[in-house]
Design a protein around this nucleic acid. Sequence first.
DNA 1: GCCGCCCGACTTTTT
DNA 2: GTCGGGCGGC
Length: 687
Amino acid sequence: MADTLNSAQMDAVHHLGGPCLVLAGAGSGKTRVITHKIARLLQADYAPSQIAAITFTNKAAQEMRERAKALIGPRAAKDLVVSTFHSLGVRILRTEGERLGLKPQFSILDSDDVLGVLKDAGGSSDNALARRWQWTISLWKNQGLNADSVEPQNDDERIAQQVMKRYEERLAAYQAVDFDDLIGLPHQLFQRDDEARAKWQNTLRYLLVDEYQDTNAIQYELLKSLAGERAMFTAVGDDDQSIYGWRGATIENLRRLPNEYPQLKVIPLEQNYRSTGHILRAANAVIGHNPKLFEKKLWSDLGDGDPVQVVECDNEEHEAERAVARIQSLRAQGGALVNAGGQGGEVAFKDFAVLYRANHQARVFEKALRRAEIPYKVSGGQSFFDRAEIKDLCAWLRLLVNNDDDPAFLRAVTTPKRGIGHQTLGALGEFSKRFKTSLYEALFAESLGTVLNARAIGSLHEFGRYVNDLEYRARHTSGSEDAKALLLGWLKDIDYEKHLYEGEDSEKLAASRWTNVLDFVDWIAKRCGGEIENDGGATFETEKKTVLDVAQTISVIISLAERGDEQDVVTLSTLHASKGLEWPHVVLAGVNEGLLPFKSDDDEMTPERLEEERRLMYVGITRARRTLAVNVLRRRKKGRDTVQAIPSRFIGEMKLHEAKSKEDPREKLRLLREAAAKRAAQADVKP
DNA sequence: GCCGCCCGACTTTTT
DNA sequence: GTCGGGCGGC
């Protein structure tokens, strides 16, 4: 991307006099606009602490802060308010809690906590039912409703309303709030307390909102009251990438903006710096089938590039094989298909992504990639390993596998605290650096006595001997039962349960962490195998693995996860999780009716739903920089059996044939398919 | 009433 | 490949 801003980006950055809506098409450099606008605001004498950039996820907030820091320097970046909606809400509630009758140390319930409270409040032990209540109540709260203002439409909703009433009472009694309250309560406060509202309006004098199309009704209201009369804000979003309607986001928020702020300056960013022409034309063609809120058409000056390929596959396994073959052949050719575009050069695994509608579609791709020995990661997935308690234990396991893993050593030696402090570790670190050894190695060095006193050395040796002993036992223990005993013994030795309860002020949270730990132990133990299995009359023992073997596999998973995007691996991701990301080569998997657009058997496809599915397709297409393969299944699995599969109507909507002759036999076939898709569309959509 | 087995389904996700 | 629900047997 050029180092300068284009003229639309420039307009967006320099419009400071009033409300501003930036319609940032895919790949149009919206983060650049936000960070440059922050810099511009600083020039215009806003203090960093008066500028709030609001995002949806912690990850996005973190990235935004990094990007801003690179532009404006660490000192100014430190005071910027870069925060998610929810953490901003926490901040408001912590300072203003009193005015809402909330103790300063209220607790925030996570999703599991809420489920528990709901089961209790609703007098049901049925998880699925409680989840449905949770879902319904959350959607209501996101619309700014409470148990008294809800108007139930059916019996289920009437029950949910009653449960909600009791749920509200319980939260008040517990002095607890849920995630939705983090937005809803500050909003209520600002509605009725002019003083508090004025105070915050003066604290946060300029608001920048990222992914504006993902805001829900209540977030919109909160923004509106924060912005106040002055209306100093920039909303950045793209109605064509609104894919979270199902969790309460509403593009109404985009539609109402020009009405509620007549002075609103709307600036479309249409130049795309990501994809080549064929890909962009396909994207524009697809999204052209949706009714338009704002006129916007992406263009790029990166040349036509390679045509979008429709890849026909017999079934899911074949599809995965073809995707693997595509990865291998593109790598072999150095990325050149028809038009290399930029430089050919090396094509790395990390240049590829396979995107799909639903998580379970990843499995068959994982299998094929493993067989082809292609490294991959499944994105968006398991955050289990991200949990602090699991990381603690993994540090120990990593240390057992590799004694020289210094970060693991540091975490293990201080978890739990065992009287080895900063001083000791600092000295050990210096020592290890000087003699170019690992920390673990340094611990046993004869000459360590020159830098540390006997007591410190004693503690270190005790730790070292324990690790040594544990490693020996882990190396010689296998089978589920023995492994479990070993692991539980270890946790008891280090008194980890106590450590959890001491480190956590909420007993409940500590208990849930301990449950995670026990799950983790079971998980490892299971992988140590050795269970007697009964297979067709013949009993046999499955192959046993030692605890150390399993720890080794875990270490690999962890180090993959930790290095994150640095790793040269193929990405498997849902379309939802792919938003905001890009890859040179993208494969869209299973572009068939029923999958994309997704349709479940019992609910009917409304036009709104279909439009959101179409935006999902649009998001998928616009992730690709240079090549795009769209996979179509001839047959697909449905439940236990395989059924005929119809190509997605979105294939036809891409208008890939536009410039081609209709005499081409392949083209005729394509047109027939398109007609079939159209018929499917008419059959499925009720007007 | 509880436990175990078998069958079937399997959206999308953040705080 | 996993989880949950439902049914059947003890």
